[in-house]
């Protein structure tokens, strides 16, 4: 797995016009849940609530799965 640079992560966020934070928050942490069937590739959705540096880390993790 290649770890993208911090610059790449920043670019990813910059280009995410709808705000990756909002998208992750809505799509991954909201909605009706089917118990036991949710597959989350993110290591902790709480990442989206950390300060900007940590948000960039969250973007790193998302990007790395591409």
């Amino acid at each position: 797995m290649t770890t993208p640079s911090r610059t790449e992560a920043a670019r990813l966020l910059d280009e995410a016009d709808a705000s990756l934070l909002d998208l992750v928050d809505n799509v991954l942490t909201k909605g009706v849940v089917i118990d036991g069937e949710i597959i989350l590739g993110l290591a902790g959705v709480d990442l989206v609530y950390l300060r900007l540096g940590a948000i960039l880390c969250a973007a790193d993790r998302i990007k790395a799965q591409r």
Partner: peptide, 19 residues
Amino acid sequence: VLPLRFGSIVDGELDLARR
């Protein structure tokens, strides 16, 4: 529309109905 959370998968229509 009531969205389900990303990644919501069931085994089929019967499983969905049961849930």
